[in-house]
Write a protein that binds this DNA or RNA. Structure first.
Lengths: 353, 353
DNA sequence: ATTACTTGCGAAAACGTTTTCGTGTTAAAA
DNA sequence: TTTTAACACGAAAACGTTTTCGCAAGTAAT
């Protein structure tokens, strides 16, 4: 159980100086071949590897990026992480993960823990509470200290940084247009409260689709749900709200839901009410997760390509980190969505953007 | 865009020594009240925070733990991460995540990246390829360098370290016993190849349940699937294999599947074959993920309590890290499973262990 | 034989902390 | 007045690297 060997120990053992060892290991030609071989053999024997922390201190960079997301038990976010990790690893970076758990305080604490030298930059998606409070001081402070940030999905105009988003508006609009082309006359929307801006944009996309088709949006067809948390209790109340909407408005023949859970729940409730899918009612969700894929019938949904989002955020961040004095203007990259057609809608078209 | 301020800069600015600044900030009473206040005011003004990397180097510990898992887009693993993060954060630790993507090489590379000073200990679950190759040298080397490891779920006897596992055997046995008590006479098993040892133990649990009930296991009822990866192609071949088993053995009235995907797919296939669930055929899965919860009908399943597993691994690891010279024997903690009864089985009992 | 260059190596600084051990000044005790 | 003790602070080492610079010895050129 020998501890990790250091340059100093090798130097002492071989009776040379630390500098010599360091240079020998880097094949510096300042060092004679004899010494080089001797040192390298010894180092290999004892499996010498330079200490990352010492390197970080010396180089003032850690080759590590911090990722702060609201939740990891969530198909979209874990896909994004996978994309980040993929790209970062390829570039020799590590990924350190903080979960805000949708809480403002935990977001701040996590950022504080990491912002003091542990990482070279942040990738983050804003927590709901922060969005609601509209308190973004911690982001600005971090940026002012020279630490680059890239935001994705849940972003906010107030912060100047690189961003990677999905075209929520277009994606939603296309989804609803596909319902319209599929002969839906009365299309409902199940969405979140407006402070979640991805929900807001998807709602706007729904409205836009209706308007371009000369449909008149009816407020009875719009359900704004308080929270998308999955606790059993909320799931029940979600079911009840949907049931109420569908029974009060039996003419509804299409549903666009801003996430998988709402969509699958709508499907469940509709069937319980005796409606056939997709003949009586067609349903489209958002996020191509495991639920959509394995539901029966399969759920037509808007795919966000989370992994691509992750790769792109990592790419933007690492670029910023590595050419630091390069004052490029901040970019906002939009990753196109794709409508994945499955059995919850009728099969007579393909739309994508 | 001022860079982070350091002790040295404060010292120069205030015309005192670095030591004085350091002590003043720690409220050492070696320092006069005057100086203390002056330093603290200045530090607060410039938002001084000690550099973590420097501290890590000095203290020779990083307050960071490395987690290596095969996949993050996976309900169970992301739950575990959440548990790890929860406990670790409470103890002031950060979590750095590496994904092996079920590959031996990536597992080794990831461990190498982290083992050189970046972290104080590992939490990991072994990749399938490593399990198949049975090459565990990288684990042993890491342990020999004095770095503690805690393994969970996919563990292996050959490595001496703390472990946290689910009682796969008992969980599976109970699940199958519940089917038997529910009057199933012909129970099929859908499992993985044997090198995935959690699959192996669950298979053994199935066998044990049959034996204790004087059922004779039939090989026609056992389906060993090559790979649980979710690609569309494999999903189709999975469906076909299940279909074949169910049509060749129409008397099958119960299915135990070693994961959610197999279970939900079995359900899908069974219904396509005109079988009613749970009346004609009852189905039990393993892992209480989002699929089981949102399936229609809801899937009865064995819950592993991933979050608890995560918390426990973190607890074991941090204990090892913090009392380092304490030569406690290695523990293996078993987290009890729980059978979550939903609509895919008949409703006349509750079993748990 | 003197100068000039090459070769091979070591000393030391730097990254940002914490902590031990002095040390000079002042106040209290002898 | 001399000794002792308390007080307030600074110097320096240490953590493990990399890198610049200097220096001695040997070799080549004058």
């Amino acid at each position: 159980m020998r501890r990790k060997i250091t340059l100093k120990q090798i130097a002492r053992e071989l009776d040379v100086s630390i500098s010599t060892v360091s240079k020998a290991l880097k094949n510096s030609k300042e060092i004679s071949e004899d010494t080089r071989e001797k040192v390298q053999a010894f180092a290999k024997l004892y499996n010498y590897k330079p200490n990352n922390i010492a390197l970080s201190l010396k180089n003032r960079k850690t080759k590590t990026i911090g990722v702060i997301i609201p939740d990891i038990v969530h198909h979209f976010f874990s896909k994004v992480i996978r994309g980040i990790e993929l790209y970062a690893n390829k570039k020799g970076y590590n990924v350190i993960v903080g979960l805000s758990n949708e809480s403002f305080d935990k977001e701040v604490i996590n950022m504080d823990m990491l912002a003091n030298g542990s990482i070279d930059g942040f990738i983050l998606s804003i927590s709901k509470e922060t969005l609601q409070l509209q308190d973004y001081h911690h982001f600005n402070e971090t940026i002012n200290q020279g630490m680059p940030i890239v935001m994705f999905d849940r972003v906010v105009n107030e912060i100047e940084c690189d961003k990677v988003i999905v075209d929520d508006f277009e994606g939603a609009k296309n989804a609803v247009l596909s319902l319209i082309k599929n002969d839906c006359r009365n299309i409902a929307l199940i969405t979140t409260k407006d402070y979640v801006n991805v929900g807001k944009y998807r709602t706007q996309g729904y409205m836009a689709a209706l308007e371009t088709s000369d449909y008149v949006p009816k407020t009875e067809y719009v359900l704004k749900v308080e929270d998308e948390s999955l606790s059993e209790y909320n799931l029940l109340s979600l079911e009840n709200e949907i049931k109420e909407m569908l029974t009060n408005n039996p003419e509804i023949d299409g549903v666009f839901a801003v996430n998988e859970i709402y969509a699958i729940t709508a499907m469940k409730v509709a069937r319980r009410l005796g409606k056939k899918i997709p003949n009586d009612i067609q349903i489209v969700g958002f996020t191509d997760g495991v639920i959509s894929r394995h539901a029966v019938p399969g759920l037509t949904t808007v795919s966000q390509h989370g992994e691509k989002i992750g790769e792109k955020t990592a790419e933007l961040l690492i670029n910023r980190i590595e050419k630091e004095d390069d004052f490029e203007p901040f970019k906002t990259v939009v990753i196109p969505t794709e409508l994945i057609i499955r059995e919850s809608t009728k099969q007579n078209l393909t739309v994508s953007n």
